[in-house]
Amino acid sequence: MPLTAADVRHIARLARLAISEQDIQVYAGNLSKILDFVAQLDKADTSRVTPMAHPLEMVQRLRDDTVAESNQRDLYQENAPQVEAGLYLVPKVIE
């Protein structure tokens, strides 16, 4: 099923990716090919197959609800593009 330029713009917006207008057509071509390729899966009869959740059929391990890690905010914020008073800064969201 070929994707249109409008489909790609929609997907890019959902994925929060800025894509230039000239690249939209290229991605439409590539993504259509990939979706055509994975459409082979339709030929497999899976009517009685339980979807696989984990290769070892493990369940999520739980831990005790106790503090295990120390607060290292300053260390972690050394990688942040913009911080002030221990807070991450972003453009104004509320007028």
Binding site: A15, R16, A18, Y76, N79, P81, V90, K92
Partner: peptide, 23 residues
């Protein structure tokens, strides 16, 4: 583009910051 990694220059708003930083 908020907590670590590449951030675009002069984002207009939060959405612009996300999409251009990732783009």
């Amino acid at each position: 583009g908020v907590r670590f990694g590449h951030r675009c220059e002069n984002p207009l708003d939060l959405m612009d910051l996300y999409t251009r930083s990732r783009g």
